[in-house]
Amino acid sequence: MIRRGFGEIVAVLLALLFLLPILFALLNSFKTNGEMLRSFVSWPETWQFGNYKQVWKDMHYPRALWNTVLVTLFGVGFTLLFSAMAAYRISRMKGSRGFWLLMFFTLSMMVPFQTIMIPLVKLASELNLMNSRFGLVLMIIALFSPFTIFLYRGFMTQLPAELEEAARIDGANVYQTFFRIIVPLLLPVTATAAVLNVLWVWNDFILSFLMLQREEVMTLQLTVYRYFGTYSQQWNLALVSLILAAIPVLIIYLMLQKYIIKGVAAGAVKG
């Protein structure tokens, strides 16, 4: 019993130690800059909620958040839709055609982003897609779908064929079969794919960094990168920007932690 209690205490201390950087960032974000430079480890004399108000305004927080939500929602939404459609057709192909199509898409899972980055920037500026959230969404769909197709296809090959045949005999065409019969069955794998893609797209830096250079269209990660650079002399405000950038995803994580941990683990093993 005593040993168990000792174990609990050690575990809690370990967890606290693990969270130390976050706790100190939080603590210091409520200080004035002068107070912070006197001591980084002291308790705030008065809690400066004004820091948050100022950074909220300075980094145009609502706008950056909205841009991120927009890009993530459309990027991931269409990635899931197009990937499920493609994976369905690929998994139902006869002979080796399906295999080669899958190879064609999964090729990109081996290629690091840096390898296509330079011509992609050139292409984007020629197509007038620079500084366009729409353009970014198109690229997200193109670059994030292969993994999602891979995930969906693996799942679909295990679905029983009888369901589809029954639907066809009932007179459903191929689109009705897909949207009414197949799509509802995909829920578990869609949850995995959605969790992974949302995390990746929400936290994406390099692709959006190259594509979105005007402040009005910047996502949270880009804004925080810019803000942290500009305010490196005012650590307290820079810390606020970090916390504001991390908070939406942390809230969602705490609410859905069970599904998120499960989804990420399932996807990671398959990829």
Binding site: M85, A86, F105, I116, I118, L138, I141, A142
Partner: peptide, 21 residues
């Protein structure tokens, strides 16, 4: 109709840049 949308985007934003590189 099932594979076309993703094919176009994939070729445009992955295959072409890869060849370009």
């Amino acid at each position: 109709s099932f594979i076309g949308p993703i094919c176009i985007l994939y070729i445009c934003f992955f295959v072409v840049p890869l060849g370009g590189s």
